[in-house]
């Protein structure tokens, strides 16, 4: 039995339950960052909305997962606290689309993506796979046992962003 754990907008969940699947719906300009340690089967998913908390410190105190700069360190710390090891982590990114309702303003999806990239580079973290940009919304399913990440776009069939680690995905 799989146990779906839904990650809301501006939220983050860390799991070490190998029967769980982290799910986040309808990423538009938002970005989801998935990190996974295959050895201890710990995974975390952060669904962030904005690049920088600098303009909104109070909000960042209350909801740090809304912002890339406050959310990403907490995502990694959360996974380390559950036993993940930095050198084994596989990191993937999805989202950052340019949504229709943002016509006329600077593309927030791209800004989110650049902010994420900048933070990861500063931390010396390389990305295993990414599916970003474009104009479509994406839904993410992240299997904690195998590390497999599947994406589903609006009106398109699901595809694999990160393959399951050999032997670990019992649902295939």
């Amino acid at each position: 039995m799989t146990n779906p754990i839904v990650v809301g907008i501006g939220d983050c969940k860390i799991s070490r339950d190998p029967d769980s699947v982290l799910v986040t719906y309808a990423l538009g300009s938002c970005i989801a960052i998935m990190i996974h340690d295959p050895l201890v089967q710990v995974g975390g998913l952060l669904h962030l909305m904005l690049p920088d908390s600098g303009t909104n410190r109070d909000k960042a105190q209350e909801k740090p997962f809304m912002f890339a700069d406050t959310g990403i360190p907490l995502l990694f710390q959360g996974a380390y606290a559950k036993g993940a090891n930095r050198s084994r982590l596989a990191v993937s990114i999805a989202g950052g689309a340019q949504m229709m309702d943002e016509a006329g303003v600077f593309n927030i999806g791209k800004r989110n993506y650049l902010a994420v990239r900048k933070i990861l580079w500063k931390a010396g973290v390389l990305v295993q796979a990414e599916d970003v940009g474009g104009v479509n919304s994406r839904t993410v399913h992240f299997d904690i046992a195998s590390g497999k990440v599947s994406l589903r776009g609006a009106g398109t069939p699901s595809h694999e962003l990160v393959a399951a680690k050999a032997g670990a995905d019992r649902r295939n």
Partner: peptide
């Protein structure tokens, strides 16, 4: 700028 400086012309 987008590739290695993580910013973009506004």
């Amino acid at each position: 700028l987008e590739g290695m400086f993580y910013t973009s012309p506004l």
